[in-house]
Amino acid sequence: MPLELNRFNNPITITRVIYLVTALLSEARPLIEYYDLKHDHQSLKISLYKSDEVVLVVSGMGKIKTAISTGVVLSKEENIERVVIADIGIAGAPDKYEIGHLFLVNQIMDESTQRAYYPDIFVKHSLKEEKLVTADKPHLNGEDGDYMVDMEASGFFEAANIYLPPSQIGCLKVVSDHKKNVKLNREMVSELIRNRMPEMDEYIRSWHSLITDQEKEILNIDDRQLIVSLKDHLHLTTTQFRQLEKLATKYKIESDNLDILRGFQELKARTKNERNGIFERIRTVLR
């Protein structure tokens, strides 16, 4: 795994993880099969399934459980810029939509708070987009409303948005009923999700690629280590260190490397005046 420095200049391993969240194990099972995920027995409070690239959280039903599970897994993620997270599951829908139809959600409305959430959708896709209402209780009486209904998405989005921009949060729902009280056993739920796995996978892969393809940091690990070593070696002040970072970034954009700074690693500063003098020389060469 490649290494990078985080914002505190500590080395971290770069991972590019896709997080998936489902409420029910029956919704999770097709994902476990498709991505060949293994149960993480070390996680006791939250049900996790993992591979190197995919982490699946089975949160339990309802927006509070989903929000807690989502928050817990994202709070531990160091490479937050490189991950996406998707809430996947079943939902009730108006009669006009067939059972088994897959939707990409572009608006989530919390029924009780009337607060709306909007995932950013940037990747071209062939899925149909729809609005989803998150309710505290199931809608089982064939209620009107030209939208889908679930019980988790608003809690999921609210928690995920603490850590991630709306462009890295997504929601995919498969129609399970027409907001009527129909009996669905576990295998039927799994089958609904399983039938849509290739389409979901295609969308998630494209979306994740877009996110991880974003512009990389200008300064790589060698550059950052060089700058940190100059800071430590010359006893630069915090202000000088910040200036050095900016000037080095500008220089790197223009010149493609920071070799010009390597000579300064040999210099020693025994007094403040000497340090300030060397720093001025560094500023001059980087300008």
Binding site: I18, Y34, Y35, S51, V54, F122, H208, S209
Partner: peptide, 24 residues
């Protein structure tokens, strides 16, 4: 074993054109 090769290939994607979504 799809998970193992999940992210190994360089994925192709296109970005939506401007104003693909209009909020009103």
């Amino acid at each position: 074993m799809k998970g193992m090769e999940f992210l190994s290939a360089s994925e192709q994607y296109s970005v939506n054109p401007d104003f693909s979504h209009i909020y009103i």
